[in-house]
Design a protein around this nucleic acid. Structure first.
Lengths: 121, 121
DNA sequence: AACTTATATGCAACTTAGTCGCAATGGCAA
DNA sequence: TTGCCATTGCGACTAAGTTGCATATAAGTT
């Protein structure tokens, strides 16, 4: 979907900060934190955080807390688990995992921690 | 194991702060943060954090970051997953889960997020 | 194109978990 | 009992994220 349609659908204003963010999140293939992109973007950190919060409440983005006290955001498309490497700290999307069920619980998110494929070689 | 043996085994000094912490962690059945126990313990927060870090590097404790930007610690016994409830924020140990394997990865920790049994009723 | 108004932005001050340097304390071995 | 080195408390600091407020701007209306 186009950036413009995403925004209009939610009755938000299409500002340059929002264009910038949505293009960036659309381009990245993995979750990103403010730290990761602060040098690439042209807005105050308050604007970043206010927008990603709004996007999250409008179901445009997902987020989760990593090992490093930072929150990571990604476009909300199909649900998938994440792998956080204790060695290289990389965050990977696990797109081909069959969903896990737990009787009585609703699972929205799954995070695995350990040693990733590349570090495990 | 006795507190004293745990400490001596790792060549650490058995201070009153360490006794207090190990008894508390041994007593609690779920992961706890500094916030959770600061009113119960008799030590500076720097002492708390320095000790839990040391215990972690000596494989006495495990820890992980929750939703709330706080780190939670627990006695390292048998490996198990955790469930964090997005609604009541409670952290539960899932002791009866069969371990999940991912080809090429080493998994040390698993965190599920969603709605827990009690909130899902 | 100018007018209007609610929404969004930048800035600076604030909050809060956790860390660090340093001087004082206290376990423990000799 | 002594002495040394790990450990402690304290206060200052760090860094992610939040908030209040004055200003700017998107977008609908005239």
């Amino acid at each position: 979907m186009q950036t413009k349609n995403i925004i209009e659908e939610k009755n938000l204003k299409l500002t340059s900060a929002r264009k910038e963010l949505l293009e960036l999140f659309g381009f990245e293939k993995k979750p990103i934190s403010f730290e990761d992109i602060k040098h690439k973007i042209n807005m105050d950190k308050a604007t970043f955080y206010r927008n990603v919060s709004k996007f999250e409440s409008e179901s445009i983005l997902n987020s989760f807390e990593s090992n490093d006290k930072k929150r990571y955001y990604e476009i909300q498309d199909f649900p998938h688990a994440h792998f956080i490497c204790n060695n290289c700290n990389n965050i990977e999307c696990l797109e081909n995992m069959e969903p896990i069920k737990l009787e009585g619980y609703k699972i929205f998110d799954m995070i695995f921690k350990g040693i990733c494929k590349s570090c495990n070689k």
